[in-house]
C-alpha cells in the first residue's frame, strides 16, 4: 500500500477551492494511516456536513457522510456495534462545536476509541462564510458584518476538560508535525482530538484582508506558538505574544476508554 492507494480515484477531482488547506490535511491523515499499516477494509471514515466533511468521500474505505453536526454520534454507533473497526472522524469547526457541540463533549467524556480530526477554518465554509463559534473576536463574516462580538471556543481546552485521552493542535503549514501527531492519535486508545488550523481563502481570507493563501499561511505560521515554548514563557512569567495560539501535543494521558478493540 502507498498513500495513493487510500484515495477513491474515481471521485477526484475534489470540490475544494484553489488554495484550500483541507487536501493537505487529508494527505497527512492518509499518510499516518498508511504508515501504521491499517487495513482499508477495517477502517471507516465518518463525517458531518461541510467542506471538511467531504473528505471521507475521497477515501476508498467504507465511509459515512452523515448529517450536520452528528458525525460523532454516528461514529459512536459504528464503533460500539463493532470494536474491531478503526473509526476516524473528519469534521469542521461549525459542525463539531456549534450544532455538534453536545456530541463533541460527550464523545470526549466517554473517551470512546475514535480519532477526530477537526479542520478549523474559523468560518462556515460550505454555506458561504457565516460566523462560527471559532470565528475570532472582531473578524468579519457574512453574519458578523460589524465584526464578531462573541469570544471563540478553544476546542482543545474543551476536549481536554471533557476527558479526551489525546489532544493536539497543528496547522496546515506544519505538515510533518501534523502527520506525526495524527499517527499518535490513531494509536492512542480512547478519544484522540486533533485540531488543524486551516486557511479558507475564499470565505475567511477574502473578508479579512488576507488576500492570498500565502498571507494566510504565513500568518498561521507566525502566530503558532510551540507548546514547549509556551510552557517556558509561562514558567518564566514572560508575556505570551498577542494573537498567538499554542500548537503541539496538549494532552496525552491514559484514562479508561470505551470501545477499544480487545
Amino acid at each position: 500500500m502507498t498513500v495513493e492507494d487510500w484515495f477513491r480515484h474515481d471521485r477526484l477531482p475534489h470540490i475544494f477551492c484553489a488554495g484550500c488547506g483541507n487536501g493537505s490535511i487529508i494527505n497527512s491523515t492518509l499518510e499516518a494511516v498508511d504508515s501504521l499499516n491499517w487495513k482499508v477494509d477495517e477502517t471507516v471514515f465518518v463525517s458531518g456536513i461541510g467542506c471538511s466533511s467531504r473528505a471521507p468521500g475521497y477515501i476508498v474505505t467504507d465511509s459515512l457522510h452523515t448529517t450536520h453536526g452528528r458525525a460523532l454520534a454516528f461514529a459512536t454507533g459504528v464503533k460500539m456495534a463493532n470494536h474491531d473497526l478503526n473509526v476516524v472522524v473528519f469534521t469542521g469547526d461549525g459542525d463539531l462545536s456549534a450544532i455538534g457541540g453536545n456530541h463533541f463533549i460527550h464523545a470526549c467524556r466517554r473517551n470512546i476509541d475514535l480519532t477526530v480530526i477537526c479542520m478549523n477554518n474559523q468560518i462556515y465554509g460550505m454555506t458561504g462564510g457565516q460566523g462560527s463559534p471559532c470565528t475570532p473576536t472582531g473578524a468579519l463574516s457574512t453574519t458578523t458584518p460589524y465584526g464578531m462580538d462573541e469570544p471563540a471556543f478553544d476546542l482543545c481546552d474543551l476536549a481536554t476538560a471533557a476527558g479526551a485521552n489525546f489532544v493536539s493542535r497543528w496547522t496546515s503549514y506544519h505538515v510533518r508535525e501534523l502527520t506525526r501527531s495524527i499517527k499518535l492519535g490513531l494509536q492512542k486508545p480512547g478519544l484522540s482530538f486533533i485540531e488543524v488550523m486551516v486557511q479558507c481563502p475564499t470565505n475567511y481570507g477574502r473578508r479579512n484582508r488576507l488576500r492570498d493563501v500565502e498571507a494566510m499561511v504565513s500568518k498561521m505560521r507566525d502566530h503558532a506558538l510551540l507548546k514547549e515554548k509556551y510552557d517556558r514563557l509561562v514558567a518564566e512569567r514572560k508575556p505570551i505574544p498577542e494573537g498567538s495560539f499554542v500548537v503541539g501535543t496538549l494532552t496525552d494521558r491514559n484514562l479508561p476508554a470505551l470501545g477499544v478493540r480487545r
Binding site: 459515512l64 452523515t66 452528528r70 454520534a73 459512536t76 454507533g77 459504528v78 456495534a81
Partner: peptide, 23 residues
C-alpha cells in the same frame, strides 16, 4: 452492546451507525 446517548438525535445517529456494521 447498549449505549445511553446524550439525546435522541444522537440515539438515532448511533443506531444508523450500528446498522451499517451489519448488526
Amino acid at each position: 452492546r447498549f449505549i445511553q446517548m446524550e439525546d435522541e438525535i444522537a440515539s438515532m445517529a448511533a443506531v444508523i451507525g450500528g446498522a451499517w456494521t451489519g448488526v
